[in-house]
């Protein structure tokens, strides 16, 4: 018998726990030729501000062992073009759409939430309060507990959609931010965004990214991300969407055992755009082998007893 892969994120039921991560999957349609978007638990589309943004000049990425740094700078088409140009096709293809929203003020987050609440096919909002690459938005709300509470609370009042603040690992205690988000009315939290990092060309003594610093992702960060998900799972009761260097079904299962209800996959999709059915079949194979009927039963089942 095939295991039940469905999971619940607030009022939202996903058919499986696998979600392409925001910033790594365009607006989803870029990948519609190579993956059935409806086969995914959901898709988290690229972060949107109210207005269009150009982002940073290249070079925007640089590789490091088992990882990469990016400083894209949230290039994007803005919420209005997203709704008119992308949502019709996403609806037609049956994608469960989580829209990642970014603001340079609380008012901007609230306005984005209001606009998207009325759009058919938008299933949840991920609040980007953790992009390390831009000065004027996002992370200023994610590195201060009072600001996190304020922005989550304000968006909570503006929408009935599930809201999922996406947390930065670039703080002393991620779990205190997860708790602040929960207290302010978040339905779930997603973590981790990338680790602020830099790479220098020693020959020229110049940074390898035009933005000097960028966010580190990929397998290099995975053990730290697993630990942070574990910390947060012990601090909050709301679901956690875990991410950070997931490259295989085994990696996804690791996050779920640590306490994630669902997972997002980003950098690995750059390497293998056909990864999605492999992740799903790997999870099914594991559940079958361990006699687990529902993937939800695996969440937070880390054994720390000595036997």
């Amino acid at each position: 018998m095939k295991a039940d892969l469905s999971v619940r994120i607030g009022s939202l039921v996903l058919k499986n726990p696998i979600i392409p991560a925001s910033g790594c999957f365009g607006y989803g349609l870029e990948y519609a030729e190579v993956v059935d978007l409806a086969s995914l638990g959901a898709i988290a589309v690229k972060g949107l501000f109210l207005a269009e943004r150009e982002g940073h000049p290249p070079p925007r990425v640089v590789e490091t062992p088992s990882g990469m740094l990016n400083a894209i700078g949230l290039q994007g088409i803005g919420v209005h073009r997203f709704v008119s140009e992308k949502m019709p096709d996403l609806r037609r293809l049956g994608a469960v759409v989580i829209v990642n929203i970014c603001g340079s003020s609380i008012d901007e987050y609230v306005e984005l939430a209001r606009i998207l609440s009325d759009v058919e096919g938008v299933s949840a909002l991920e609040l980007n309060i953790s992009c390390p690459n831009i000065k004027e938005g996002g992370i200023q709300f994610g590195c201060d507990l009072a600001s996190t509470r304020a922005v989550v609370g304000a968006v909570r009042k503006a929408t009935r959609l599930p809201i999922i603040p996406k947390l930065t690992p670039n703080v002393t205690s991620v779990s205190s931010f997860a708790k602040a988000a929960e207290d302010a009315g978040a339905d779930a939290v997603s973590l981790v965004n990338t680790f602020l990092a830099m790479v220098i060309d020693v020959e020229t003594r110049r940074p390898k990214l035009s933005n000097v610093m960028g966010g580190l992702s990929g397998p290099a960060i995975r053990p730290i991300a697993v630990r942070m998900v574990y910390d947060c799972a012990r601090a909050v009761r709301i679901p956690i969407i875990g991410m950070g260097g997931i490259n295989s079904a085994r990696d996804a299962l690791e996050f779920m055992i640590a306490g994630a209800t669902a997972v997002q996959v980003g950098t690995a999709c750059f390497v293998d755009p056909f990864i999605w059915p492999k992740l799903l079949s790997g999870i099914e194979e594991y559940l079958d082998r361990h006699g687990i009927e529902r993937v939800a039963d695996l969440v937070g089942t880390l054994r720390t007893d000595r036997n």
Partner: peptide, 16 residues
Amino acid sequence: ERIMGCGMGGCYSCVI
């Protein structure tokens, strides 16, 4: 030719 992350339009690295 630009530094390219994915080749599929997902990452926005290779802009010109």
